[in-house]
């Protein structure tokens, strides 16, 4: 059942990214280009995703999932250097190609060749993070409540 549930959630996620245009790098870069021909459509996409997820998460807080023993959610609240540094590096990559991880994987269903290249590079970056500095020891520890 958890597998079917994950497939279904993935299907809804992928459909949302495809229909909204989030899967299209050209649209994402247009959204990030506020001083040029700014296309605010994705602001609406993110806003509506939050409008749904925010109350949903609030209602689900602390509840037992249907197909799992417990919720496995991050618990850390401190803001540290890796968090900000990593997000800045991610933002740089996102701004260069207009692709973030969710759309990169969904893109396999549209342009498999390009998706494969991007995901391979992305996976290499994820592996590289293990050697990127001594503070990585802290980052690779799952900060999840079990």
């Amino acid at each position: 059942m958890p597998i079917i549930a994950a497939t279904f959630a993935g299907l809804v996620f992928g459909a949302g990214l495809t229909i909204s245009g989030m899967v299209n790098p050209d649209v994402v870069l247009g959204f990030l280009d506020i001083s040029g021909t700014w296309d605010p459509a994705l602001l609406l996409v993110m806003g509506s995703a939050l409008a749904v997820a925010l109350p949903g998460y609030w209602l689900l807080k602390g509840r037992k999932p249907l197909f799992a023993e417990k919720q496995l959610v991050p618990t850390r609240r401190d803001i540290d250097v890796p968090l900000i540094l990593g997000s800045v590096i991610f933002g740089l990559g996102w701004g260069l190609a207009g692709i973030c991880p969710g759309p990169a994987l969904t893109m396999f269903g549209i342009r498999p060749g390009m998706a494969f290249l991007f995901v391979t590079a992305m996976s290499a970056g994820m592996m590289l993070s293990r050697f990127a500095g001594p503070w990585m020891l802290r980052i690779n520890t799952p900060d999840c409540k079990t």
Partner: peptide
């Protein structure tokens, strides 16, 4: 960019 996205999201 792909490399940066992977590295950045991991860190």
């Amino acid at each position: 960019a792909g490399l940066l996205v992977g590295l950045g999201t991991a860190i």
